[in-house]
Design a protein around this nucleic acid. Structure first.
Lengths: 357, 357
DNA sequence: CTGAAAGCGCTAACAA
DNA sequence: TTGTTAGCGCTTTCAG
């Protein structure tokens, strides 16, 4: 029976062991075991090499990452810091799961592993310092708060970082984001082209950057078309669209014929509440969301929405990080991804009677 | 060739730096900086101690985890291996996000961080060896396949591991799971008590362990009550309940008056398809799910379901792992969590006409 | 109370 | 082609 290697620290075979066993020097063993230099094939004789490899295999050797790290080689390890502090909810689930999937996939393919860092962000400058020696090569910061000191802190320490989904100005690091403004424009123009004139907007009550950008663009586009948006057409969900809000909106003297919401989660809630209120969609009310999350398909009727290519975005961010880590210079700019209008069944032309002023 | 600076190589102050700066020896600095022995308070003079601390603070010192690890101290780091290979879908989203939240929360409170490991599982024995020196103290394995070699491999290496959501027999490690059998019993008996006699079951087409256990218990309970389950009342979603299946089920000479599904996702699909088919729920058809995921609440009507305390389960698993890592012996048994029947609006007594044979 | 010294496992000059 | 050697930053006896 083979001798089972044990946990690190409990006598796992070391390079020294295999060197002794194979009758070569430590250095030779090292070179063989991790084809260090490209010319290593030449450096070590074929017989020696196979012998060493054989021993390494027999002993169940695997290099001690920690020791290797001490030599200031890259650790091939990414830090990931999610910034959705909210309790798990429908949005966070999908967003987080998608991002995680992308990051892990790309990292794995590139030979990196990813570890979570969730130290408290208050006192972020301090945290940043703490991260430095945690043994990661770079950080991916997911959706940090607008003025996150974590970003500036890490950046000032010269740690490679990429920011995802939070591309405010003056960001001290490269970032990846969807073009929220373009998406909001697509949504608004879609509705306008269908003939809607009275369009309401419902946003999350949290003042995230993307949320604001979507609302502002909505307002600009409406203005460009000479359409007025009454003050009370601008609502905030808490964070869902509740019956009262919708009833209020639809009970106005000149009710909206369409609603553009800041995300699919809110939109799908709105659809459901509307249906329970006996409002037919899209005949009596059009609703357009944002994200194209599973909520959009699951809604009944399925949502017209703005697709955000989250998976690709996260993959791109991860690749950028790895390139930075591997020495490439990447300017602290934002890579914008184009959103895409996905027309499903929750939007249509306003009915003649309602469209009439 | 140049060696690119890694995060930690960036000229961060070392213990040596602070020792020199404070005019003490390396050893003293070490003792002060990480109150090593319980009697360290005594070991170092108060003045020296404050001076060292002050310098450390001023220089922004933080210990190099890698170097410390070399000394075979615990690394305070957990490995996490998710086993949901499927593309991100609604179930995986919520399951994964909840587990991750629990694990990270508990780990953080205990001063551990968590890193993802997703090396290929085929060739698991090999992978296990590879994990050993990755610098983690223990592994949390989420929902491994029934005969995962990863589990046995890791176990044989004597690495502390805990398995979540996959408690088949002969497991070589402690595990945490919901009592699927009890849950299926609650669901089935709920339906029987409401007066249902013809109950169908729809499961995922994947043969996961929990799925099988739920179906088998459903059958046992039905048998205990002397109720027959025709062969064609046992269906598999692909993985959703499609129109045809439901139409088939309801079109049978003696159609079921209720359906118990293997999870909420399938149940919520079923509810929606039924509604589109013009079937009223629960008057004409009762549907009971499993999990109490967000899908259950989001369904219309909201689902009666079996609540699985996933967050607590994952937290418990993490705590167990940490206890193992810290030296406590934990027997390789399963800790079962009780499921709980949550009655909402998707279940009710069968209507008189349909209940009649 | 404090310092000197010996490594942890590995890599990379530099020798041979 | 191979071996020797000097650390990486830290902890920890063991002497002063």
């Amino acid at each position: 029976m083979e001798v089972l290697p044990t946990v690190q620290g409990k006598g796992a075979p070391t390079l020294k062991d295999i060197a002794r066993e194979a009758g070569v020097s430590l250095a030779t063993a090292s070179v063989v075991v991790n084809g260090s230099r490209s010319d290593s094939e030449v450096r070590v004789g074929e017989t020696t090499r196979t012998r060493v490899l054989e021993v390494a295999d027999r002993l169940g050797y695997s290099p001690n990452v920690m020791a290797r790290a001490l030599k200031r080689v890259r650790l091939n390890s990414l830090g990931l810091s999610f910034h959705y502090l909210n309790p798990v909810d429908a949005i966070a689930d999908h967003y987080g799961a998608t991002v995680l999937k992308a990051v892990i996939g790309v990292a794995y393919d590139a030979g990196y592993n990813v570890t979570h860092f969730h130290k408290p962000w208050h006192d972020a400058r301090q945290s940043a310092v703490g991260f430095r020696d945690q043994g990661i090569d770079g950080f991916l910061i997911i959706s940090p708060a607008p003025h996150s000191q974590l970003v500036s802190g890490l950046a000032s320490l010269n740690i490679p970082i990429i920011v995802l989904s939070s591309s405010f100005n003056q960001l001290a690091a490269p970032s990846v984001d969807v073009d929220n403004s373009k998406g909001a424009r697509q949504a608004t123009e879609h509705l306008v082209e269908l003939g809607h004139r009275r369009i309401a907007h419902v946003m999350d009550y949290q003042t995230q950057f993307d949320t604001i950008s979507r609302r502002d663009t909505f307002l600009s586009v409406m203005a460009e078309h000479g359409l007025m948006v009454p003050e009370n057409f601008l609502q905030s969900g808490v964070p869902h669209v509740d019956k009262d809000m919708l009833r209020y909106l639809l009970g106005l003297p000149n009710p909206p014929t369409a609603i553009f919401t800041t995300n699919d989660w809110i939109a799908s809630r709105a659809v459901r509440v509307a249906r329970n209120l006996g409002v037919r969609i899209p005949e009596e009310l059009s609703i357009v969301g944002f994200d194209d999350s599973p909520d959009a398909r699951a809604a009944d009727p399925p949502l017209t929405t703005i697709r955000q290519p989250l998976l690709e975005m996260a993959e791109t961010a991860t690749r950028m990080l790895i390139r930075m880590i591997e020495g490439e210079f990447i300017a602290p700019k934002t890579v914008w991804f184009d959103p895409e209008l996905v027309v499903r069944e929750s939007s249509g032309p306003p009915s003649a009677s309602r469209a009439a002023k």
